[in-house]
Nucleic acid binder design. Sequence first.
DNA 1: TTCTTGTGTGTAACCGGTTACATGTTTTTT
DNA 2: AAAAAACATGTAACCGGTTACACACAAGAA
Lengths: 328, 328
Amino acid sequence: MSTIKDVANEANVSVATVSRVLNNNGYVNEDTRKKVLKAIEKLDYKPNAVARSLFKKQSKTIALIVPDIKNPFFPEIARAIEDVLNNNDYTLILCNSDEHEDKEKKYFDVMKQKYVDGVIIVTSTLTPNYIEKNNIPIVSLDRPIHQSIPSVSVNNYEGAKEAVQYLKKIGCKKIAHVRGPVSVINADERYKGYLSEVCNEPWFNKDYIINGNYNVLETAKATMVLLSKHRDIDGIFAGNDYMALGVLKAATQMGIRIPQDLSLIGFDGIQLCELTSPEITTMAQPIYELGESAAKLLLDMIEGKAVNPAQQEFKVSLKIGQSTKVLR
Amino acid sequence: MSTIKDVANEANVSVATVSRVLNNNGYVNEDTRKKVLKAIEKLDYKPNAVARSLFKKQSKTIALIVPDIKNPFFPEIARAIEDVLNNNDYTLILCNSDEHEDKEKKYFDVMKQKYVDGVIIVTSTLTPNYIEKNNIPIVSLDRPIHQSIPSVSVNNYEGAKEAVQYLKKIGCKKIAHVRGPVSVINADERYKGYLSEVCNEPWFNKDYIINGNYNVLETAKATMVLLSKHRDIDGIFAGNDYMALGVLKAATQMGIRIPQDLSLIGFDGIQLCELTSPEITTMAQPIYELGESAAKLLLDMIEGKAVNPAQQEFKVSLKIGQSTKVLR
DNA sequence: TTCTTGTGTGTAACCGGTTACATGTTTTTT
DNA sequence: AAAAAACATGTAACCGGTTACACACAAGAA
């Protein structure tokens, strides 16, 4: 690999001049510029990003910290983010936290040591205090942390209400909820949305709420217990699509027909919804847009641009599949 | 952030001494070491990874280039790799190539500029020549490129044969194949494996081979055409699980019962297989192990260790689900 | 006692860029 | 014509580490 010095020698100028044409700043005579460009071409010179980072204290790299990339929601997000970064000459570092605070913090340390320019994080454990102490541009995605931390998310509460309302509208009389882990903010919000819609119903029963913990098999098991105990449940609102998959599995296994016997609605709108049969009705987040916005927001922050609404909330929209009774 | 100089000042020693205790090399008096350690503690000093990189010409970072992280096979691989790296103080950069040579090459350039220590790549387009020219430790994953390039993969040909053999064993009389994209080496191998098992069968018909292009919806469509034309097909070997999902969808939509009317077997063993109903029978790759091995192999290469079998081939194993008729 | 050898530490060069500053030349302004 | 502004380029410090080399001293060998 040739260095800036090699180029300088080849072009018979100083390294400063080469640097100037490289970065397009300062005065450079047109002829000199051409000479340098030719030398760069000839040596196939590529500036050393590390040396540049050291001086500039920035690495053109951002980190994405998610609980687990195997959860199908996150690859979709990651893809959107990577696309934006790629178009802006940034690079993406991927981190799996397993919702584990220690791991998150360890990643943060590494990020700072590597001059990572910013981070996009999906977390339920980190405090605003810790984050601000670290003093690195950050965007929380999917799960807002605090008003002081820029975030990109959706209206989980309203969305959950809409989901339950839709189940009611198509005629469901007893609606259960498979909720995500306690203390995950959006799982809580969705749960609250469900609750607000059903708590005053005469049929409402606290046993209709089960915990799926973002795990398909666990959800399937819990659902089987639920459905065999309460045979009159005719609607289920799953806290996300991944868990809805578990409900679908449980129902199929038990010979409960979806949507004839049981209507199922999920949340998220991951691609998988369209690939199952029946296709899962869901409250769809604009997932790609979410990732895109988070990335753009972060890049703006890094480049010191004003970020108008630092708390971006997108709307979810009902995406009717085949897992809910047809309205007539 | 404090620097090595701050620590040196605090401890009243030179930066060289601090560096020595940091890296545990050279002579350092025990008392001095303690002084330095205390200063490090007091200042919460973390060495600057970029400065270190510049001198050492290595970044403790490796890149993973996959076609598209949204394909559920890759997050599982990525997760395994990230785990290994994390345990070895390496960081993972994620790149989506979309099978596009230009993008792959662009990533390579960036990697070299950032002193990325090695790359794990899933590619069908890069030539051994180009790769060797780049002179950066590399492991090809899932799709071997050439004997000269270390790789981690499975016995696709044999696996495909086994899959078809199993379909025969359970009594399938007419077996179709949904193949992956032409020129993807493992899709070709699986296709050949299928062919070798069926080409001499009296019933064999070239029309039984359709192309799913790693796309679920496309596969579903093509499968519907296939199945409505050839109503006597009673077994399908899908080139991977993701496409098997498409077959499942098509069959369900057409009212064809799986496994009663049609047996379906996939390839890969992604987690999704267990989450559908019926669960998909598949020739399972040891996915996590694959990623793990690729990462370990690459780290060994980076650290200059001899890599015994630089071409690692794992075995796939039949994982019986519910999408194939029960053998009795 | 003198010569090695081992221990302990500091100085400064180096990694490969960027940029403040100095210097000289040309062009524009007054 | 003199002063100011714009242009062009080079020198060297700097980013924050690592390490070759020099030097001083103590312990062991001859």
